[in-house]
Every structure is written in C-alpha cells, then in structure tokens.
C-alpha cells in the first residue's frame, strides 16, 4: 500500500490541480475567473499526459547518430515523444479557446455592462418578464 502511494502520489497532485480548475469553472461567478479555471484544468491535463511519456533516467527525444553518443550515455533511453506532440497541439488549441472565450466576454460586457454571472442572469430574467408584460 505504502509503495503504491509513493509511486502514484503524482497522479493525486494532477487530480488536485484539475479539481482546482474545475471548481473555479463551476463556482466562480466572474466569467474571467472561469477562463482562468479552464486554463488551470487544461494545463493539469497536459501535465498528466507528459508524465505518461516519462521514462526513468530518460533523455530528450532527439536521436543521436548511431555510435556517436557521448561515453557513459550509450544506454540512456529516450522519452516517449508521442504525448509531447499531442500536448503541443493541445496547447495551441487551448489558447484558441481562451481567445474566443475572452472575445465573447468582451461582447457580453458590451451588451450587459457586467461580467458577473448572477447579474447577467438577473438582466435576462428582467427582460423576459418585460417581454411577457
């Protein structure tokens, strides 16, 4: 049990980071805070993926020509490059999401005069009631 905890506690920290982000998305009323939460959640998932590609004593996946590796490092393994590639794509897509979300927030601020979720909902309810009357 102790051995399992010692070898798997990294995952618990990644999950803690993800939950901090998820909590901000769900509980925070300010829309910018929700975006900050989204960024934290996203980056924690990236960290999880990168850790999947980690190999003990591994090195950067840049291949040495055969027989030219520095002495003493002939048998050092390379890290798994696949998670790195996937996360490179995901980082850029994440920034695109952030950009669109922020543009929407600026648009909401222009239309409602606020970026607090409850005030936006109140304004919507008020408008609906006026529409009924």
């Amino acid at each position: 049990m102790l051995e399992f905890l010692l070898s798997h506690y990294n995952y618990a920290i990644y999950i803690a980071l993800m939950m901090i982000g998820l909590y901000a998305i769900l509980a925070r009323g300010n829309l910018v805070k929700k975006i900050i939460g989204l960024n934290i959640l996203q980056t924690a998932v990236f960290l999880f993926y990168i850790s999947i590609g980690k190999v003990d004593r591994g090195t950067v996946p840049v291949i040495w020509p055969a027989g030219e590796r520095p002495p003493g490092f002939e048998n050092v393994p390379y890290e798994n490059p696949l998670p790195h590639v996937l996360m490179l794509t995901a980082i850029v897509v994440g920034v695109s999401v952030t950009a669109v979300a922020l543009a929407l927030i600026v648009r909401i601020k222009a239309a409602y005069g606020t970026v607090e979720e409850d005030e936006i909902l109140e304004a919507d309810e008020l408008r609906d009631r006026e529409g009924d009357a």
Partner: peptide
C-alpha cells in the same frame, strides 16, 4: 525537467 523540451518552450 521531464525532458518534454518542445512542450516546455511552447508553454
């Protein structure tokens, strides 16, 4: 430090 240098500089 996890040797994901390409991801690190992109981040």
């Amino acid at each position: 430090r996890m040797n994901a240098v390409d991801v690190a500089f992109t981040e």
